[in-house]
Design a protein around this nucleic acid. Structure first.
Length: 279
DNA sequence: CCAAATGTTTTCCC
DNA sequence: CGGGAAAACATTTG
């Protein structure tokens, strides 16, 4: 379930890390580039950003050592379907939909400990026995950690969507609207639930080819995205929409027009939509 | 035992 | 190179 909204919740939760120095940690090398922890130990966290579904931790090495890079490095947290972030022992999202409710340390993929300095309260942060500053827990290991990844292929961020950006992203493509919205190179951050949700609100069929949309429809889609996302973010994430996991599972009558919701596979993902009002 | 699950990535084919 | 379909990744949940 981690889509752009969950990444934004985690990004906000991780902002207290800015200013702290990474003093140690551990990375599962099946999920992270080899030597990642050694690369960032001693570095100060200079920023926490988000791009699409990816949370980015910028770190500034303390000094140029021989053979090491002195410029800012960026740790990318990619959550896959089951990755969760725990900051200073607190999980902003306790339980992910469609994932385990347990928090087994065996599923930890990245642990970063930071120095006690710069932490409000002054207590130890990530010292012996205490909670690490950052913990990425991912049972299914479908997520991963990147270092200085090239993210230039990503499309417009879901919170920056405009009609013009969609028009440009849809140009020269002839795929189903639902497939295009799930493509991170088109819009970065929309996942299966958010894509179905915004199409439901915009009244657009997931089957429509993107090259068949007229400017009015693209404008309606863009404004729907801009309007619905902040509401769902406030409510707690991508499961809080009209087409919640419960609705998706049960396929009750459409809440808008009492027609029947349809559940079918589009682009190898489950799509839920209302043929009565989505055209 | 079985089916389905929020996300990528790869591979093969047209 | 642009797609589309399908499989793969690894595991839990109901």
């Amino acid at each position: 379930m981690p889509e752009g909204l969950e990444a934004e919740i985690w990004r906000r939760a991780a902002t207290p890390l800015v200013g702290r120095v990474i003093v140690g940690g551990w990375a599962d090398d099946r999920s992270s580039p080899a030597g990642l922890v050694e690369e960032v130990v001693g570095a100060r966290i200079s920023g926490v950003r988000r791009l699409g579904k990816i949370v980015l931790i910028d770190v500034r090495p303390r000094a140029a050592r021989r053979g090491s890079r002195s410029e800012v490095r960026t740790i990318g947290l990619h959550f896959g379907m089951t990755g969760r972030l725990v900051i200073d022992g607190a999980a902003p999202i306790e339980r992910l939909a469609y994932a385990s409710g347990r928090d087994d340390p065996a599923w930890d993929r990245l642990i970063l400990r930071t120095s006690p300095t710069d932490h409000r309260g002054g207590g130890a942060v990530g010292g012996d026995g205490s909670d690490p500053a950052l913990r990425l827990n991912d049972p299914r290991r479908l997520g991963h950690v990147s270092l200085d990844a090239d993210l230039s292929h990503l499309g417009v961020d879901l919170f920056a969507v405009t009609a013009a950006a969609l028009t440009e992203a849809f140009a020269n493509r002839r795929v189903a609207l639902k497939v295009a919205l799930l493509n991170q190179d088109v819009v970065a951050g929309l996942g299966n639930l958010l894509a179905d949700e915004v199409l439901w609100w915009a009244g657009l069929s997931p089957h429509r080819s993107v090259d068949s949309l007229d400017p009015t429809e693209i404008g309606r889609l863009a404004s729907t995205i801009r309007r619905r996302l902040p509401i769902m973010l406030r409510r707690g994430g991508s499961t809080t929409g009209t087409l919640s996991p419960d609705v998706r599972a049960g396929c009750p009558p459409c809440p808008r027009d009492a027609g029947s919701l349809r559940r079918e596979e589009i682009g190898q993902r489950t799509a839920v939509w209302c043929p009565a009002h989505q055209h």
